[in-house]
């Protein structure tokens, strides 16, 4: 695959060996897509909780209004993706989409050993991140389809509305678990979180946690120790 990620000398001066101290991890378009998507998801999750969790329904009321917000904000979910992937600026997104799709032998080993395999060298993303990204995209499509059937049920066979509700409810539960995990892990790794906020990570973080990506970006000729992700 074409390598588009290049070290960006935006941090402290390069170290003694000439390697940059910080590496660009997420381009502006990627960060924009992430946070635009996260904001919309936060609104649909909050309104979903009000519609679904008894005590919250009772505390907030205004069911018709909450439902309208949930439906229409939900329908805007594809917009950031379309803007991101259809514009001239899509290069970094396409590159990362390819990385997320492909699982290397190391990824499989990391996944099967739950991150404890010896000698596993990860690329830009760990398999948990890859799985989370694929699941999130799949869930958005499934939620849009089932939510639309629930809302505009007239043209569909009668069973489908119940079926769509069933899928929408269970996907929501899995999505809630995935989001909670995603946010929890991000908060426990400030350097990784910083990459999504400011764009870069320290070269040290990359070498320890994403050695294969580090070498790709910096050039494999530099000395390194084998990281374990």
């Amino acid at each position: 695959m074409a390598e588009t990620t290049r070290p960006r000398p935006d941090g402290p001066a390069p170290d003694a060996r000439g390697a940059p101290a910080r590496l660009e991890r997420f381009a502006p378009v990627e960060r924009w897509l992430h946070w635009a998507n996260a904001t919309l998801i936060a609104v649909v999750v909050a309104t979903a909780a009000i519609l679904y969790v008894g005590p919250l329904s009772v505390a907030v009321g205004r069911r018709a209004l909450v439902r309208t917000i949930h439906v229409y904000v939900g329908l805007t979910l594809p917009l950031p993706w379309l803007i991101g992937f259809l514009g001239r600026w899509r290069g970094p997104l396409l590159d990362d989409a390819r990385r997320i799709n492909r699982w290397s032998a190391d990824d499989k080993r990391w996944f099967l050993t739950r991150g404890r395999g010896r000698g596993v060298r990860l690329g830009k993303f760990n398999p948990g991140q890859k799985l989370n990204a694929a699941f999130t995209v799949g869930a958005i499509v499934v939620m849009l389809a089932t939510g639309s059937i629930m809302h505009w049920f007239k043209p569909f066979p009668v069973d489908w509305r119940t079926g769509a509700t069933f899928v929408h409810d269970w996907t929501a539960i899995f999505l809630f678990v995935a989001i909670t995990g995603h946010v929890g892990i991000a908060l426990s790794d400030p350097e990784a979180l910083r990459a999504m906020l400011r764009g870069s990570v320290s070269a040290e973080w990359a070498r320890r946690h994403r050695p294969r990506w580090h070498d790709e970006v910096v050039g494999a000729d530099l000395p390194h120790e084998v990281g374990r992700g």
């Binding site: 799709n101 699982w103 032998a105 990824d107 699941f135 499509v141 499934v142 079926g163 509700t165 899928v167």
Partner: peptide, 26 residues
């Protein structure tokens, strides 16, 4: 190095399960 399109499989698998759920979910 050899790699497999696991991401695409997860995505398509979810669409398949979702469609099955709509039809047989009740």
């Amino acid at each position: 190095e050899r790699s497999s399109p696991v991401g695409r499989r997860v995505f398509l698998g979810m669409l398949g399960l979702g469609a099955a759920g709509i039809v047989w979910g009740s």
